[in-house]
Amino acid sequence: MNIIACVRQTPDTETVIKINGAANGIELDGVKLVLGPYDEYALEAAAQIKEKSGGEVTAVTVGGEKAAETLRHCLAVGADKAVHINDSGADDALAIATALANQIKKLPHDLVFVSNKGTDSDRGAVGPMLGELLGLPYVGLVTEIEVEGGSATVSRDVEGGAKEKFKVTLPAVICAQKGVRGEPRYASLPAIMKAKKKPIETVSPEGDLASLRKVQVEKLEYPPARPPGRMVPGESAADKAKELVRLLRSEAKVI
């Protein structure tokens, strides 16, 4: 089983995000970059499936020089080798999916994992794009996966409390949801030592990525501050209850 895990470096969730002076990006100075927390779940699933069925896990990332650090980490938590597609262009789903697809086409692949989202752009778009570009079936937000022979059985939760179960012929692209195969493992000391001997291949992206970057960030701003609190008016308890429910529904939009 040849498994590809597409991973990405993202700011640590605890990091304080500061918008840069030009308001078109964030201050990267002092921002701790880590392997995307959702990617860790995907990688864990890949590692477990490999451990059961044999084969190899290749971690692939698109990013600038620093992205290689992320791959080192992947090699310590289950990946056997890694490919760094060196590209420091703007973070754009279509460009990333294209660069990944062009690389993955050259690698043996039975199962391609992508993760739900990064902590930065929150978009979850790379997975379905990758499925389309590779011409492979795609299932998003998978919470359970079993691989048997040439197919995978996957389940996922959809809105309204339903759970869908699919049988997918491999190769396929799967987007792993948090916890798909339990909590990601820690990098053990021996694994960290072994990771140093595993190969990271650095390649240039293929394809005209610049022309694919059709989503340009014009400006970044902080969300508006929370409006000051207020008292819910009403004569009786019943009036207040009615008004509160209305406010929660149509103003705060939390129910």
């Binding site: 279509l94 752009s121 389309e132 299932v139 809105e159």
Partner: peptide, 23 residues
């Protein structure tokens, strides 16, 4: 931007090599 909607939009945007803004 539901589970189904997001995978549909991603797939079609890739097919059209088109801009996709998520969520």
């Amino acid at each position: 931007a539901t589970t189904h909607g997001k995978e549909l939009a991603g797939k079609l945007a890739a097919r059209h090599s088109a801009a996709l803004a998520s969520e």
